[in-house]
Nucleic acid binder design. Structure first.
Lengths: 152, 152
DNA sequence: TTAGATGCAAAATTTTTGCATGAGT
DNA sequence: ACTCATGCAAAAATTTTGCATCTAA
């Protein structure tokens, strides 16, 4: 499965978010954060853990999970489910917009989004405080339509 | 947890997709499919299993998972990660618009959506054949903000 | 100094599989 | 008849937790 690149966030963005949220600035966390920012498609907890270990040997899996949870809570990262089934944590500052192929699972990110207006209006009406949004368009990519390929 | 109705997809849509894909039309599958179509924010495998059991007593968990996988492959549902951490399988055909509370998991559906345009344009540019789209706005509902409840 | 973080290992969850049996076509 | 689908239970994989020990602030 191919899948789009993680838009290289300005280094330190996630770390800053954590700090501003009042969490301590620790080496293990910095390692996880760096792993995420440099993860290129390899965003599964397991892969992030291995990457974080290279940066901060001795880091435990639990710390990776705990940090991912913090970041998710801050809306800095958004857990998604990859075509192969496992979780992936792409950086998600702001909204995320995906074009997802039902055939091969490819996920292409795009920026255009016209929801600002509607989102705010609907949210206000329901008394919601918006944190972010996810817009996914599902379909079949050219390749899959041609080959009649189907995701297993 | 409260949550709005799931816009009743034309009953049988998912079942039809399965049939057209060449899969057998069995009672257990029909139960799962109905559970999904009637899932009201309760889209976790576990909840869907309980719902399916009410429709077809004796159905096993494995069948639910297997059916969800088939439907995912067909692009009929799209696995996402719920605020509480588990998976959710919202319908991915047609257009769905949810307001999801990070605090209590409430899912409210709404109709307004300005994405028709954008979706078509982006899809065409990438050579995608659109099957549907999902717009989810994440935030905190009034109740949760008052009680200070936060997603764990 | 002191609340918050970490690593480890165990526990809990969630999802997948093997296999004998039962159904749809 | 012949596949394909199912349920069950076991196995695997994934995620969460308890707790003693560190460490940033």
């Amino acid at each position: 499965m191919k899948s789009s690149e993680t838009k290289a966030e300005r280094p330190g963005l996630l770390a800053r978010l954590l700090r501003e949220a009042g969490y301590r600035d620790t080496a293990p966390r910095r390692a996880v954060v760096r792993a995420i920012e440099e993860a290129d498609g390899e965003q599964s907890p397991e892969a992030l853990w291995r990457a974080a270990q290279r940066i901060h040997p001795g880091i435990g899996r639990a710390t990776v999970y705990r940090t991912l949870e913090l970041l998710t809570g801050l809306g800095a990262v958004r857990p998604l489910i990859a075509a192969e089934g496992g979780r992936r944590y792409p950086v998600a500052v702001g909204g995320h917009h995906h074009l997802v192929c039902s055939g091969c699972g490819t996920v292409v990110e795009f920026d255009e989004c016209a929801e600002g207006e509607v989102a705010r209006r609907v949210a206000r009406r329901q008394g919601f405080a918006i944190q972010g949004h996810l817009l996914e368009i599902y379909g079949t990519c050219g390749d899959c339509r041609v080959t009649g390929e189907v995701r297993t």
